[in-house]
């Protein structure tokens, strides 16, 4: 028998976690997983969906804070996210269906730790950290430190993810997320890629990051080496990105794709993500999500 209670305050929620409860917000992973027999419902469940401390998106001079309870539906239309942290909006807009996006939260998605999660690669390229809180304090953990293996994070059982934080964006920056999908709704990433690009006034890349979805045990940050730094985004540099992404990936074969196909297409997604991020960095508006605006699988 499962005991369900609703936290009236953050302190109460943290105390419940310290006492062994598991948190529930949208329930899109917890409840569905239980019904599918993946994992039984925990004995004690504490609902955190009414906590104001976990809500809201706020941008200060040097940092963006996204409350853990912010839903995908909010992320896909929030003007700050769409303009400055576009990759997150691109990803949120592709998640599941309107009903999943309305109840599924960013914090829940992050802590579920799936290597196929769409918002994960954007968080990595945007330099996000997860803010984990307990009754005795809190700490910031990078996404690479947080995700350990499919479904497993480095967070302790009494830690609650209360927010995702990331640095404010430098001038002339853009980001994008694209994914390979076989249909336009109710889909999960076959592979995906996020990119963040910053350009100098001459259009040369000063900073670039790429992360990959569903090609390893966790979301994978790509070491681009000198593939982009100091270079323009052109056919040669994009081809180099695609090659590095394909070589970095360690995909598996499953029902959705073979490893060979994943390795190839993740390169395609990486180059498309970098290209879209570069265009955004150059001031172009590409409507959210890139997948729809640029056509099939984000081709142009």
């Amino acid at each position: 028998m499962t005991t369900f209670s609703i936290a009236q305050s953050l302190d109460q929620a943290l105390q419940a976690l310290a006492d062994g409860a598991r948190p529930v917000a949208g329930g899109t992973d917890l409840v569905v997983g239980s019904r599918q027999g993946k994992a039984p419902l925990p004995d004690t469940v504490i609902a955190i969906d009414r906590l104001d401390e976990l809500a809201g998106i706020s941008l200060s001079d040097d940092q963006l804070r996204i409350g853990a309870m912010v839903t995908h539906a909010q992320l896909m239309v929030d003007p700050i996210i769409a303009e400055h942290f576009s990759a997150i909006a691109d990803a949120a807009a592709l998640v599941g269906s309107p009903s999943t996006r309305n109840v599924g939260t960013l914090g829940g998605n992050v802590m579920n730790g799936s290597p196929a999660m769409d918002t994960g690669a954007p968080l990595i390229v945007l330099g996000a950290t997860a803010e984990l809180q307990t009754t005795s304090g809190n700490r910031q953990v990078t996404m690479e430190e947080l995700w350990v293996s499919p479904g497993k994070t480095s967070a302790n059982a009494d830690e609650l993810c209360v927010a995702l934080n990331m640095p404010a964006r430098p001038a002339n920056s853009g980001s994008a997320y694209v994914r390979l999908e076989y249909r336009r709704a109710m889909e999960i990433a076959v592979v995906g890629a996020a990119a963040s690009v910053t350009l100098d006034d001459g259009g040369m890349v000063t900073d670039a990051r790429v992360a990959l979805t569903a090609v390893a045990a966790t979301i994978l940050a790509v070491d681009l080496g000198d593939a982009l730094a100091g270079k323009p985004i052109d056919e040669a540099s994009l081809a180099a990105v695609a090659k590095i992404a394909s070589e970095t990936a360690t995909p598996i074969s499953d029902l959705r794709a073979t490893d060979r196909y994943r390795r190839h297409t993740v390169g395609v997604m990486a180059r498309r993500a970098v290209e879209a991020a570069g265009r955004r960095a150059g001031g172009e508006t590409i409507a959210i999500p890139v997948n729809r605006t640029l056509g099939i699988g984000a081709s142009q």
């Binding site: 390979l180 999908e181 076989y182 297409t265 395609v268 056509g295 099939i296 699988g297 081709s299």
Partner: peptide, 11 residues
């Protein structure tokens, strides 16, 4: 039909 040749995704 449009084909994304790089991925094989048809629309």
């Amino acid at each position: 039909v449009r084909l994304d040749r790089d991925t094989g995704v048809a629309r």
